[in-house]
Design a protein around this nucleic acid. Structure first.
Lengths: 342, 342
DNA sequence: ATTAGCACTCCAAAGAAGTGAGTGCTAACA
DNA sequence: TGTTAGCACTCACTTCTTTGGAGTGCTAAT
């Protein structure tokens, strides 16, 4: 054996569902009442014993009920919950329609998601890799400072103030602008390589050193992997006793606050092509401090290969069904929202 | 009586200092050894009894040592600690010199401050009231979208994408830019009133409606009270047992995460003119959930009346001396940094 | 194959007892 | 009169024990 028969599956399902609700280890008696297949607790016990041997469930200590192991959750996620319709998409529309800058939309989304799910959430700005430059402009802000504005596909606007040592008259500025625009427009970040740069410099002729400075600035601005991450609902984790322990909670919240580490979650899931939804259970997560949690991430797209990521962090016994529903909804909405000009 | 004699003051000082270090209620015996004036524990007990009656210290329960009351802390802050030199200003310089956009500087500062003090910190962007427009520019990003860039004093850059229904040729754009710049430059927000706007529209002649749209956009962008607040070190509060309680910690962190409420701290302290440093002890704080904490805020300035605020949130027994030193340092540095062009 | 019954395990909550830091008070002392 | 020593008392904390109950595994009966 290695296979689960129908009955074992039903029992496993029941165990997990019950555990999701209560957060307490679940005993044979409970299940014997819960399921439709009428079985006595003793029978359940036997089956449970099997399930434990197979590694789907675990006993925290000898005489406690069982809780799902990571493998159990995995089975649940993979096989047991693809059969249900999804949740309402409440006020999401509203929020998205009524805010403006991407940054704010994202913050809002994170917050909302945290509120509706009661888990901690995170969301990243779309990664520009593959995003194209749409428009570049330099202007003199005052005598010594140059402002570079770069607009990317998707109306992602970046600014950079560049200090100038050298004089720069209006005519030159105009020329530079034309040059920059005609060269850079339509290019994606990886396409702006050394070749492009040196060619640009060449064309700039006597102003090549200025172009150099400017390009450095521009390059830095564009390529600065500005993977902003917004989080929300960190305090939700206090709602789950199994995470409430000071040390765990502190580490978790720290991770959420620092954001740094969260990036690892994202980059990984951005690679992944298929459904776009990724589930990390316990140790599967690349972040050590989250080994007592589960993380569900999803990807949203901005058309031109710009991808961002939304994630939900909660206890292992999170309501995967609901969470995945929410995420699916959300990403599809984000997709459509960002595609039209804001 | 009502007055504290020299000896009582010394004892009170000793009590508070000891409590600040240990976090434990402090007993008579400890003090009798601590102070230079050699007194037996019994004498101290008598004095403590008096101090308690006067409301400066408090007993958590009948047979515990004493801890300072809010009034005690207040006395300490007001009278007891103005006599000491300040702390080093470690790597602050470094960080500030090496980052660029204001936003990032602020984030860095918050983080650094949290790390060096071991408390939670917050910092706001300078409030633009009084800030002047330095430079305005409109550019066509594509056929239907106009990008407005506004640079404020202090190199605060704001962008707004404005959808256009109407055609707009290059020449007109140029004219508009000149018009906008010559009119708006040097004006502070409150100075851009209806009068200015209608005058502008008039001058724009046949393009008055476009100017209208643009100005609306600009106005909205500028005046949006973008009081961003950055926080850091939320998890530091777990370092203090008296705040580690789940409920308190959760509320506190929530407040820090939500930021919303923090604004009340700031607005208040921005009014205050004198030293610029404000101390809220326990209930004195406008934020209810912080009644078990103390909050110290300071104001930094950008010359033109643009003010921002830095704050430190910690346990009541925070090291006021050090904190205030840090803040003083920091604000004076921020002041000078932001005044020169970045 | 299922179930009832029973002995056994073990956590968790509730008590019990000891410990120690701290107090208040009184009486003695300088 | 201010200071101190001494003593009985309080009360949180820790440790140990007890107890109750939920849960298991096994065996024998259905």
């Amino acid at each position: 054996m290695e296979e689960l028969d129908e009955r074992k599956i039903k029992i496993l399902d029941a165990i997990i569902r019950t555990y999701l609700e209560t957060g307490e280890p679940v005993g044979s008696r409970t299940i014997s009442k819960y399921t439709d297949l009428n079985l006595s607790s003793a029978t359940i016990r036997n089956e449970m014993s099997d399930l434990e041997e197979l590694g789907y469930i675990v006993q925290p200590h000898t005489s406690a009920g069982r809780i799902p192991s990571d493998k159990g959750y995995r089975f649940y996620v993979d096989h047991l919950l693809l059969r249900k319709d999804k949740e309402i998409s409440d006020m999401k529309e509203f929020v998205i329609e009524h805010t403006e800058k991407m940054e704010q939309v994202l913050k809002q989304v994170a917050k909302m998601l945290a509120q509706t799910t009661n888990y901690a959430t995170m969301i990243t700005t779309p990664k520009s890799t593959g995003g194209k430059v749409k428009f570049v402009q330099l202007s003199m802000v005052d005598e010594e400072q140059l402002l570079a504005v770069i607009v990317m596909e998707g109306n992602l606007v970046k600014n950079k103030i560049i200090p100038l040592t050298q004089e720069l008259d209006n005519e030159t500025l105009l020329k530079l602008n034309i040059l920059l625009n005609s060269t850079l427009n339509g290019l994606s970040i990886p396409e702006i390589n050394l070749g492009t740069i040196s060619k640009l410099k060449e064309q700039a002729g006597e102003y090549s050193d200025i172009v150099g400075i400017v390009l450095d600035g521009v390059a830095e601005t564009i390529s600065r992997e500005e993977l902003e991450i917004y989080t929300s609902g960190a305090t939700n984790i206090f709602k789950y006793p199994e995470l409430r322990d000071t040390k765990k909670a502190s580490e978790l919240i720290y991770a959420l606050e620092e954001k740094q580490q969260l990036a690892s979650l994202v980059t990984e899931s951005l690679q992944n092509e298929d459904t776009g939804i990724q589930v990390y259970i316990g140790d599967e997560s690349p972040i050590q401090t989250m080994k007592d949690c589960s993380v569900v991430t999803a990807t949203y797209e901005l058309g031109d290969g710009m991808k961002g990521s939304v994630g939900i962090i909660g206890p292992k016994r999170m309501d995967y069904e609901k969470v995945m529903g929410h995420l699916k909804d959300l990403t599809s909405q984000l997709d459509s929202i960002f595609k039209k000009p804001t």
